[in-house]
Design a protein around this nucleic acid. Sequence first.
DNA 1: AAGACGAAAGTGGTTGA
DNA 2: TCAACAACTTTCGTCTT
Length: 310
Amino acid sequence: MMQQHYVKKCPECGGINLFYNTEKGEIICRDCGLVVEEKMVDTSQEWREFDSEGSEKRRRAGAPSTYTQYDQGLGTEVGQKADLFKLGTKNKNKFFRLRKWQYRISTAIERNLKLALAELKRVSSYLKLPKQVEEESARIYTLAVQRGLVRGRSMESVVAGSLYAACRRHDVPRTLDELSEASGIEKKEIGRTYRFVTRELGIKILPSNPVDYIARFASSLRLKPETQSKAIEILESAQRGELTSGRGPTGIAAAALYVSALIHGEKRTQREVADVAGVTEVTIRNRYKELLDELDLEKEIKKQKKGKKE
DNA sequence: AAGACGAAAGTGGTTGA
DNA sequence: TCAACAACTTTCGTCTT
C-alpha cells in the first residue's frame, strides 16, 4: 500500500495538523512531533490498536504538561506576544502565571532530555541500531518524561527500556542481556521499566518473532546462509505446530539454529549457541527435544552423520 | 575430557480468586 | 493481596563420544 493519504489524524495525539513530506515518505504531526514512517503504518498493527483503543482519552488526561507541545524536544511557550492583544486585563495575570509554569516544566524536561538523549545515542550506537529505532525510542522516552514516568526511576533505565521497546516494535529485537551490557543497567530493571513504560503509554507490543533473531545469531556463530534458511524453515513449521506460543523466542530461535547446524554439518555445541542467544543449554535442550518430537528431523540429522563418515 | 542429557530446586513474573 | 502456575535458570550427577 503506497497511499498514505487516508491517514487524517495523528495516531498519537489525534491532531489533524499533519505534514506530508512525500520526498522522504514521511508524515509528521505538527502537534506532537510524531514521525509516522510509511513502513510503520503499513506493517505494524500496534498503531491501529493504538488508535482505536481511544488513545485520545488517555492522552489528554492528567497534568497540564499534556497540553505542552514539543517540537522534537524543543519546548514551546504558552502563546506569543500577539496573543496578548486578544486578552482582557484580568486574564493577563493568569496568562503570565501559566507561562511561568510552563517555562519551569519545560526547562526541567529539556534538561532531562538533553542528558537522556545523549545517553540514548551512546547506547544505540554501541548496539549499532538503525536510525529509525533510535528515533522511535527517543520519542518514547520523550513521552515518558512528559508523563512524569521517570520519577523514581533512574534516567538510564528508562532510556534502556525505551530502546528495548523501540527495538521490539521495529522487529529488530535485541535481548535484554544485550541492552543490559550496553547500558550497564541490570536486566531485571530494564524489563521492569520497559513493562512499566509501555503499559503507562499504552504501547502495544506483539511478542517478538523468533525468526527475527536468526540472522543475528547465525552470523555471530558464523553459520552458512543455507543453515540459516533451514533454521527459518524449521521455525515456520514449529510455529504451525503450535510449538512456539508461550515460549521464549530466543530459546526457540537458538534451538532451531542448533538443529539446522547439525543437519548441515556445521555442528556447534549447545554452549556456543546458548551463549549467543543468551539462554542456557537446558532451554535449548528442552526446545530441541520438542522440535524433534514434533517434526521428523531425526532422519535428516542421521543422514548428515552418515554423509560425514563416507 | 568435553559435550550432551535430564532431574531438582530456585527465580521473577503473570494470573485469578 | 496472595497463592498457584508456567517458563526459564542454576546446579549437579550421569551418560556418550
